[in-house]
C-alpha cells in the first residue's frame, strides 16, 4: 500500500450541515486525524457542546456524549474521574465556553482536571443567528450590536486564554488559527500535544482555534480568513500562551 491522503477513519462518511467555509469541518477532521495517529479511537470519549457543533456525534466515529449548554467541562470532569485511562476531550464554541459556561471552564481549569478542551472561537453565536458573543472584537457589527461593539456600551472582548493562564491547575494553553495550510498544521500539532499531555497525565490543557464564520460575518469564505489575519489576530495573538513541563 502506498501513502495516500484520505478522509480519516474516525470521521463518518456523511455530509456535514456546516455552511460553506465554516471552520468546524476542518477542526473535526484535524481531531479525527490526531485520534487516528495516536490510535485511541476505541478509548476516546468526546463531549459535544450546544452550538453549531451540537451534531458532532453524527460526524465522529467514536463515543461522544452531549452536555447542557456550557456544562461541557463539568460533564467531562465526571467522565474522566470514572474513566481515568480514557482520552476525554470537550469541543466547545465561544458562546458555550466563554459566555454561559465561564464558571465550568474556569473551575475545571482551577481544579486541574486532566481533560483537553478544544475551543473554537468565531466571535459570534452562529447557531442562533449571529448575535454578539463575549469574544466579539471591538468594532464588529453583529445582529445584537448593529452600531458595532463599543467598549463603553458592550464592554471589551473576553480573553479566556489569558484569564486561564494565571490558574496554577492549567498546564498547557495554545491559540492557533485556520487561515492557511501552515496554520492548520500548527493547529493539528497543538491538538496532538494537548491529547498527548492528557495521556501522560500532565493535567488540564486547552487549545483555542480562531475560526471563520462567513455567514454571520457577512463575508465570503476567503474574505473571512483574510479578516482573521488582519483584524482578529490583533485582539487574540496566536501562539503558545502557557506550557508547564
Amino acid at each position: 500500500m502506498g501513502k495516500t491522503y484520505t478522509r480519516p477513519n474516525s470521521m463518518k462518511d456523511v455530509l456535514t450541515h456546516y455552511c460553506p467555509g465554516c471552520g468546524h469541518g476542518m477542526v473535526h477532521r484535524i481531531i479525527c486525524e490526531v485520534i487516528d495517529e495516536l490510535d485511541v479511537r476505541e478509548t476516546t470519549i468526546a463531549v459535544a457542546p450546544v452550538g453549531c457543533a451540537v451534531l458532532a456525534y453524527d460526524y465522529w466515529n467514536f463515543d461522544t456524549t452531549e452536555a447542557a449548554h456550557g456544562r461541557t467541562p463539568a460533564v467531562a470532569t465526571g467522565i474522566k474521574r470514572i474513566h481515568p485511562d480514557k482520552l476525554v476531550f470537550t469541543y466547545q464554541g465561544d458562546g458555550d465556553l466563554a459566555a454561559i459556561g465561564t464558571a465550568e471552564t474556569i473551575h475545571a481549569g482551577n481544579r486541574g482536571e486532566n481533560i483537553s478542551i478544544i475551543f473554537v472561537n468565531n466571535g459570534v453565536y452562529g447557531m442562533t443567528g449571529g448575535q454578539m458573543a463575549p469574544t466579539t472584537i471591538l468594532g464588529q457589527i453583529t445582529a445584537t450590536s448593529p452600531y458595532s461593539r463599543r467598549s463603553e456600551k458592550e464592554g471589551f472582548p473576553l480573553k479566556i486564554m489569558e484569564m486561564m493562564a494565571v490558574l496554577p491547575g492549567v498546564t498547557y494553553l495554545e491559540r492557533t488559527m485556520l487561515t492557511s495550510p501552515k496554520e492548520v498544521i500548527k493547529t493539528k500539532k497543538a491538538i496532538k500535544r494537548s491529547f498527548k499531555r492528557q495521556l501522560d497525565k500532565k493535567g488540564f490543557s486547552m487549545v483555542e482555534i480562531l475560526s471563520p464564520c462567513p455567514t454571520y460575518w457577512g463575508l465570503s469564505p476567503l474574505e473571512s480568513i483574510k479578516r482573521i489575519e488582519n483584524e482578529v489576530v490583533a485582539t487574540y495573538p496566536v501562539g503558545v500562551i502557557k506550557e508547564d513541563k
Binding site: G2, C22, G25
Partner: peptide
C-alpha cells in the same frame, strides 16, 4: 495542501 484546507473532506489523494 488542498486536502489540508478542505473543511468537508471533499478532496482526497488516492493511488
Amino acid at each position: 495542501l488542498c486536502v489540508v484546507m478542505c473543511p468537508d473532506c471533499a478532496i482526497e489523494i488516492v493511488e
